[in-house]
């Protein structure tokens, strides 16, 4: 593998460039859609808001919420994927591949079928529970045996757990036709149709997750030297692993609670970030967050315009980008 950068300066430049990319994608996301709005109008809507102007209202209400959600989910999934790939030492690890998303989805569908829940915060905790159960099952399955955590084994375990939860979800939805109609678009992965008011209570929790992830960067670097070495350097390996696991599951679960099954972001972005940062997790994690947010924003823009006036669910969009990438990594070879 070629590493592009080795010193702090180039890494700084990458962070700045990708932040710039993020800003551009953000504005692009606010201005494109059924009514195209010029860049200058978009900026005006943000900074000199005029409630009488329809275009301003469009930007400030539906599109802003949507863009924020895309960024939040993109960043969370990418960070979750990056940590997961470090924890399992597997380049194919990602929340969707390892069945964590499917677990979260099943728990959410189950609880809305049987309990009257509406708050996104509740969904977030339920998703967290489901994601944890799936993650623990997959990880412990992957870890048994001599060749513990071998790539193929953990991916297969993920596929099985994923299939299990997916068919449970399908079973619940088939019984309840009305609910199927209302959750289907969410299930396919969508960043549209949520209110800002619902999102706001969740944001502080996610922010805590991101901050912990960023601070874990140094510990991840040490952990990747090998457990023996990490122990020798005085790291409490078990605690670090548990913490990484919690952050992974929390971020992935919350993303599902907000946007449903959006795949492949957690797989692709960490690989790009790894190439740019020479696998230094202190930089890799923030960079993954920024790039993940940009990638999901851009996917959302494309999803909105390819078959206007309808939209492609964003989960389908990311799968179209992600499947070739997955194949590329799988072909490149695994241990």
């Amino acid at each position: 593998m070629m590493y592009i950068s080795n010193n702090t300066k180039t890494k700084c430049i990458f962070v700045i460039v990708s932040s710039f990319l993020l800003v551009v994608s953000f504005i692009l996301s606010l201005s494109t859609g059924q009514t195209a709005i010029s860049f200058s109008d978009t900026l005006k809507a943000l900074f000199q808001y005029n409630p009488a102007d329809t275009e301003h209202v469009i930007v400030r209400t539906s599109r802003l919420t949507r863009a924020v959600i895309a960024m939040v989910i993109g960043a969370s999934l990418a960070v979750s994927g990056a940590l997961m790939q470090a924890l399992t030492k597997n380049p194919l690890a990602a929340p969707d591949i390892l069945g964590i998303n499917a677990g979260a989805i099943f728990f959410i569908v189950f609880s809305i079928t049987f309990f009257p829940l509406h708050s996104l915060v509740h969904f977030m905790w339920i998703a967290f529970l489901g994601a944890s159960i799936a993650a623990i099952s997959v990880y412990s399955l992957g870890a048994v045996g001599n060749n513990s955590l071998s790539s193929i084994k953990i991916v297969l375990a993920g596929a099985a757990i994923s299939a299990l939860f997916t068919s449970f979800t399908q079973g619940l939805l088939v019984i309840d036709e009305q609910r199927l109609q209302s959750v289907l678009f969410w299930l396919a992965g969508s960043v549209a149709g949520r209110e800002m008011d619902m999102l706001l209570p969740v944001l502080p929790f996610l922010a805590v997750g991101w901050i912990i992830a960023v601070f874990l960067g140094g510990s991840v670097n040490i952990l990747l030297l090998g457990e023996e070495m990490a122990k020798g350097l005085g790291q409490r390996v078990f605690m670090v692993k548990i913490l990484i696991g919690l952050v992974v599951v929390f971020l992935a679960g919350s993303s599902v609670a907000i946007g449903g099954a959006i795949g492949f972001i957690g797989l692709i972005v960490p690989h790009i970030a790894r190439g740019l940062t020479n696998s230094d997790y202190r930089w890799l994690i923030p960079l993954s967050a920024i790039l993940g947010a940009s990638l999901l924003l851009l996917s959302d823009v494309v999803a909105r315009i390819v078959i206007m006036p309808q939209e492609v669910p964003i989960g389908v969009m990311t799968a179209i980008i992600g499947t070739p990438f997955f194949i590329y990594i799988a072909r490149k070879g695994l241990k």
């Binding site: 790539s151 036709e177 396919a188 099954a261 795949g263 389908v316 799968a319 072909r331």
Partner: peptide
């Protein structure tokens, strides 16, 4: 083969979901 199959399966499942979302309501269920 199995790994790539799993990847393709994930991609195909997304396409299937896409078709379901876009079929008419009567067909969806």
């Amino acid at each position: 083969l199995v790994l790539i199959g799993i990847g393709i399966a994930a991609g195909m499942n997304a396409m299937v979901t896409f078709m379901v979302v876009f079929s008419e309501t009567a067909v969806t269920t």
